[in-house]
């Protein structure tokens, strides 16, 4: 039978759900080991943060899609959490191999890291359901059809008050850690990257300007200290 857009979307959804069936709603034994290896165990903060993010996300999803869709938002979030845990574990495994380190306390106690990773997982889930795409993306507040509602990127950044700059940091590692992502989803994440690079990261208030200023000042200070070096 011909691969219609609806059938393609259904296939992607079934593939995503199939991938995440074995991943529970809680950290796996391996991931728990990484948490326990930390100087400061991040487990309680991770669970509390997820509760808060779920509340925020499902409320905002209901506002964008329709009041009866708050439950849909919770379902998306549940899938997102499984993907978040799965990808985090894979990221830590490859960092452990790369750095020969098992204590990731600083990273796993960084709220921005977790929020960015969770936002990316939700972006993948919504893109799979066709809710976040760069084709339709029409602004339709209150409309009950999720596919038409404005939950398209960068909506998720506003929901979690996340800077595009920080969200950008997890994208490549996310794709590397989850090789089963479909071609369309990888392309979607790459479009998010391009949008950030070309526009969003340069908006007023972006942390990028402060970082560039620090970098510039740091560079200028070096030049003053060692003028002879520059010859």
């Amino acid at each position: 039978p011909p691969q219609t857009p609806i059938r393609a979307a259904m296939t992607s959804i079934q593939q995503l759900r199939g991938e995440l069936i074995s991943t529970g709603d809680q950290p796996s034994t391996n991931l728990d080991k990484y948490f326990k290896n930390c100087t400061v165990d991040p487990t309680q903060d991770v669970l509390k943060r997820l509760e808060t993010l779920e509340q925020t996300f499902s409320q905002r999803f209901g506002q964008a899609v329709g009041p009866r869709c708050v439950i849909l938002g919770k379902q998306r979030f549940t899938l997102g959490v499984r993907l978040y845990y799965k990808v985090m574990e894979e990221m830590l495994k490859s960092e452990e191999k790369r750095l020969s380190v098992q204590n990731f306390s600083k990273l796993l106690n960084d709220s921005t890291f977790h929020t960015s990773l969770m936002a990316c997982a939700l972006e993948v889930v919504m893109a799979t359901y066709g809710e976040s795409s760069f084709k339709t993306g029409g602004y339709n507040p209150g409309g009950d059809d999720p596919a038409e509602a404005d939950v398209c990127f960068p909506w998720i950044l506003d929901v979690f008050r996340l800077s595009a700059f920080d969200f950008y940091k997890v994208i490549e590692s996310f794709i590397k850690a989850e090789p089963t992502l479909s071609k369309d989803i990888v392309k979607h994440l790459e479009t998010c990257e391009n949008l950030i690079m070309e526009r969003i990261a340069w908006r007023t208030g972006s942390p990028l300007f402060e970082l560039l200023k620090q970098e510039h000042e740091g560079g200028a200070a070096e030049q003053v200290e060692t003028p002879a070096m520059c010859y």
Binding site: M91, S94, E95, R98, L99, V101, F104, K106, L107, D110, T112, F113, K169, V170, E172, S173, I175, K176, P179, L181, S182, K183, D184, V186, K187, L189, E190
Partner: peptide
């Protein structure tokens, strides 16, 4: 899969991006 361009070098990873190296 879509030929995504991986830009991180071998000595770069999520730890460096979040200043946790």
């Amino acid at each position: 899969s879509h030929n995504y361009h991986f830009g991180l070098e071998d000595h770069e990873g999520i730890s460096e991006l979040f200043d946790c190296d």
